[in-house]
Amino acid sequence: MSDILSGVVLQLRLFRRVPGNLLIFMTVPFFSLIFLSAARSHGDHVVSPREILAPVLMGFWLVGCQIAEMVVSYERAYGTLEIIVAAPARFTWVVTGRVLTVALLGIVTLLEVIVMSRVAFGIAVTVYHPTVFILGLLATILASAGTSTIMTAVFLAVRGARRYVNTLGYPFYILAGVLVPITFLPSPLRPLADPIYLYWSGNVLYGSLGRASIRDPELSLVMIVLLACASYAAGNLLIRKVIDRMRASGEIGLG
């Protein structure tokens, strides 16, 4: 537990000392601006929940990728990875603390979207199913942290993580139905949405903003939590395996 807490404190301090790391939160209002402007320019007087909340889900995904990249790049650049490996603390717990902090900060993207909708477009965001919405949001935070853990392992294994981060966005937004419903996709591609938490998060979060009842909210919530747990467990296992491999191969260096 103390390792997780240390990860939280470290991440908060790095954000405070390196405000540039918070730039990621600047992109979400722009997404919101673009989507809502596009809707309005098509003459839509009633904006769909997808147009309002898609930037939030994109924000969660983006900060998840960015933190994974940041953890690995920072540890490599500062030469701290090797010392953590040689310290009694468990690197995986520290990573958990760091990604959880950033995933929690993902809520900021929701606030940004609510403010942008209200101030720039006069849209009041109404949540018709608040319980499902809050549970969905909490589950999404966990899933975002789980996904970041897997990505941390991948970025540890593959050098030059920064190059890959930008390619990990839009294919997932499309496949998971964040931007357009997956019914727009060819049938053979639709099952690809199932293992992506964004799809299930979209179901509950988008549904919560509609008056109509949400289709299978329990299933969606369970799926998000399951995917969160699975990705977290897989990420931890992968990180341990990658570090063991690096210790064996000599890719990890002291200097």
Binding site: S2, R13, L14, G79, T80, I83, A89, L254
Partner: peptide, 26 residues
């Protein structure tokens, strides 16, 4: 473990913050 050079500590964090973090790691 004591390194030479710049590596092994977080440059933007203060001396105290670095030492607090590494105390926890140990």
């Amino acid at each position: 473990i004591v390194f030479g050079g710049e590596r092994g500590l977080y440059g933007r964090l203060t001396v105290r913050e670095n030492l607090e973090y590494w105390s926890a790691m140990y």
